[in-house]
């Protein structure tokens, strides 16, 4: 494990085919790599470069720009506690301190058992539900310290496995388009005309 597996390469090609230029698939493929290995390995980045026609340095340049990509292993559960204004007004800092105590790690740290990594996150678009957090990008709203402890217990006991996959998997549902329905992505240079329906007549 490191380069993408055969199945994932097949999936990668399917994703690439949806874009007029394969470079556009870089971020989706990085997610795929992270789903495969739990983090993004150098081998995977080199492999992605081959698939989308970029140098490894370019792929790494893109990958390292984005928060979600990790370049060494993290806990099975990545807990992101929002610390931006709305959550801060509603006690995010207290929640973070509690979380640090409960898990026995500082922000950015991973518990000894490799189960949990704790991070401070920026605004998660749940500002009305403050303070909020995400576990592997699944939300928990208006979290009290007591509720946080319950959450950690449930996760550790595997009681939430159905809802929350291990770190690396974000969406469990993928876009799938059957060839017969797909119009097909065309490189921009191969298109010069207006779409057929732009002829002043109704399309139906």
């Amino acid at each position: 494990m490191a380069r993408l597996t055969e199945d994932n390469v097949r999936l990668a090609r399917e994703i690439i085919a949806r874009y007029p230029r394969s470079r556009s698939a870089t971020i989706p493929l990085l997610h795929l790599a992270q789903q495969q290995d739990g983090y993004v390995t150098n081998e995977a980045m080199a492999h992605i470069g081959e698939l989308v026609g970029a140098t490894s340095a370019e792929v790494y340049g893109t990958a390292s720009f984005y928060e979600m990509f990790k370049f060494e292993p993290v806990g099975k559960y990545l807990i992101n506690i929002c610390g931006t204004m709305s959550c801060a007004l509603m006690g995010a800092e207290e929640l973070i301190h509690h979380a640090e105590d409960r898990l026995g790690v500082k922000l950015g740290g991973t518990t000894a058992d490799g189960n949990f990594t704790l991070e401070r996150a920026e605004c998660q678009a749940a500002c009305t539900e403050a303070p909020c957090l995400q576990v592997n990008y699944r939300y928990r709203y208006r979290v009290t310290p007591a509720e946080f402890d319950g959450l950690v217990d449930d996760l550790a006991a595997g009681r939430l496995d159905a809802e929350i996959p291990a770190h690396g998997t974000v969406a469990r549902v993928r876009q799938r388009v059957t060839p017969d329905r797909m119009v097909g992505a065309v490189p921009p240079e191969d298109v010069t005309e207006a779409p057929v329906w732009m002829d002043g007549k109704a399309a139906l």
Partner: peptide
Amino acid sequence: FSIDITLHWGAG
């Protein structure tokens, strides 16, 4: 009228 909608997602 034919159109593809391609789902794309960011990374933070």
